[in-house]
Structures are given as C-alpha cells and as structure tokens.
Design a protein around this nucleic acid. Sequence first.
DNA 1: CGAAAGTGCTACATTGATGTGACAGAAGAA
DNA 2: TTCTTCTGTCACATCAATGTAGCACTTTCG
Lengths: 196, 196
Amino acid sequence: MSHDDYTGVVRADAARNVEAVLTTGARMLAADPGASIASIAAEAGVDRRTVYRRFASREELEAAIFEARLEAIGKAIEDARFQEAPVAVALHRYVENVIAVNRTWPVDFSRMFADEEILRRRNLYYAEVGAFLQRAVDEGLLRPGLPADWANQLLPELMQLVVRHMPEASNGQMADVVVDTFLHGVGAPGQAAAAR
Amino acid sequence: MSHDDYTGVVRADAARNVEAVLTTGARMLAADPGASIASIAAEAGVDRRTVYRRFASREELEAAIFEARLEAIGKAIEDARFQEAPVAVALHRYVENVIAVNRTWPVDFSRMFADEEILRRRNLYYAEVGAFLQRAVDEGLLRPGLPADWANQLLPELMQLVVRHMPEASNGQMADVVVDTFLHGVGAPGQAAAAR
DNA sequence: CGAAAGTGCTACATTGATGTGACAGAAGAA
DNA sequence: TTCTTCTGTCACATCAATGTAGCACTTTCG
C-alpha cells in the first residue's frame, strides 16, 4: 500500500494541503478532465507525492472531489428548505446556494460512475429536487405538461452556465438571472406559453 | 511523414471509412474526451493504422471532427435564413437544424483551441447568431435588458441538453421544447417577466 | 481483368502519466 | 524544545497511448 492512513489527529498544514488539492483539482479537472495529478499538485503548490499520500489513485481523488461537491450540494438543499419555505423563496435560495457551490466545485457530473455510494447520493439529491419541482408545479409556479424531468435537467444546466458565463457577477445577481430565465425564458412577455 | 496525402481521386471505401471515423469519433469523444484513437478505430470498424493514414495526429483528427460540425452548423444557419425569414420561423428552423447536427456531431466546443482558422469560423457563426438574436429583440420576440450574450449562450446549451435528455423524440418535438423553454421558460404563465 | 489505391496486421520506439519506495528535513503539537 | 507527523526530492517500475514502418492482401475503378 502506498498512501498512509492518517488515522490520528490531522495536522493543520495537512488539512490545508488536502483542501488545496481538492479545490484546485476540481477547478482543473472541470477545465480539462485529462489534467495530470502532477499538474494539479503543482497548481496547488504541493508535490505530486503528497497527493498520492492522501489518495491511493487518481480515481480516488476524483471521487473525493465529487464527494466534496455532493456534500456542499446537500447543504445547499437543506438550507433551501424545500418543504417549509414558500416555493418561490426556496427556489431562489436553492439556486443561489448551488451557484456558490459551482464556483468552488465546478465539477462535471457526467463521467462519474466510480463509487456506488456516491451515485446513490447523487440520485437521492436529484430526486429531492425533482420532488420540490413537482411541488412547484402543484402550487402553480411551474407549468405542468412538460416532458418528464425536463425542468430538473434544465435547472442545473442554467446554474452551471451562469457561473461560466458571468463569473464576475455576485451570486445574488446570478441567481436572479437563472430563476428569471428558468421561469420566464428570454422571450418578451405577452404571448402565452404554448400548452402543447 | 506517416500519413499519406490522398491528392488524387478518393476511393469509395476510403470515403466511407473517413466518414465512419469522423462520426464515431465525434460520438465517442463527446462521451469521453480521453477516448483513445484505438478505441475509436475499433468502434468504427477500422484499423488504428487507417486513422493515422488520414490524420497525422490525434489533434488533427479532433480538428477534422470539429470542422465537420462547423460545416454542418454553417448549413444550419444558412437554411434558417436569419435575414429574410420571419424571426419566429427562422428561430425554430435554426433550432431544429442544430438539433439534427447535435445528433451526429455532439462535439464539446469548450476545449478546442488548436486551429486558428477553425476558431475564427466558430466566432463568425457565434456572431451571426448573436446578430439574429438582436434582430429578435428589435422585433419584440425577445426581451431586452438581459445580460449581454446571455441568450446566445443559453440557446446552444438548450439544444445540447434536449438531445442528451430525450434522444428518442423527433427533431421537431425537440425543437418545440427548446424554443418554448427558450422563450417562456418552464414557469406558469400569468406573472410578468421581471424587468430587472 | 488488371493496375492503383487503400486496408489489416504485426511489430517497434517513444513519451507522458501513474503509482511506489526511501530518507532527510520542515512544520506543527505537546 | 522535543517528539511526531507530514512534506519535498530523487529514483524506479509500469502501463497505456501515440506515432511509424513494411508487407501481404483486398477493394475499387477504368
């Protein structure tokens, strides 16, 4: 075995380094999924060897990054209070939270089949958002009759796009744009939305 | 030099193979940007060596795929008749055309800096669509006052998403969903779009 | 049919990334 | 300060992908 286990108390600099590797890795892997461990380590101001001491393999590093994102998403959902808060409020809050997450963890979900546990969690959150969106339909915020899960696929895309496209804006501004576009599109008001 | 030049008349099977390599490559590279030449060749039913006979390097293959997509996009734009056709018609036509392109060439634009010429062309098309969207604003189809280029960034994303999300649907159905979402979002009608 | 063009196959060299090992030295915790 | 933990560095083995080479064989086209 190569990587140590670090069972005891984590030293301060060690924690710092892990954090740097994870966030830097998230950023670089999002920009280029083929980025080497060496390049990530260098960018994080750490030796390649140090990365391998925490993560047995590249795959494990990627899983850790992914899990960090999931953790943050979980908090974002919790903070949005899907059940209790008014739909419109919860939606905006959720969007703003996830936008913040996307800044630090701009991870590309698509190629992530490694860990079964992580997959399960991802699907859980997906379902929770789906349920909330259903509530939004029931309460008249969202239009019914659209293709299944369409809104649930659209929303993450918007939240990713806005961060890539106008990163200089504040999270609040971004959230405004996303929610506005999500609900009303970019068309002029007046014409009713087609009920196909 | 390794790859031959094929200056003379292209033989029928050769053309078939190039086509297969290009489309298969587009599909596989979209699914996994790190897909090896060998795996692409295998999937295309061709020897690895055959790929290298046409394309001097991996980079050149990727550029060729990219160019094929651009070519198709160019036709899509032309066919939409951005200047002459009524805005709503041109929009729907453009969307449906690009959706068709996305099926065959689901290429990820983001990591493509190789060829200067290709970059130029990509920017040209981007500007053409931008001009058309401006026309749509002027004619009252799109809402003014949104962040610069927001609509122009949003539209491609929708057209990619719809192909990934409901590939069993017809191009027309997909186009309906995209245009509808683009213009009106997924919110219930009634509340006016916020003019922020 | 027969010449030309193109392909498959079996190597081979090279390169870059992954993952390990050992050890001296720096940084944090007590 | 001193013990422990963690890090950087040099070194090494491995592996997968890239790109080349020659030759026998097949396909196309005139």
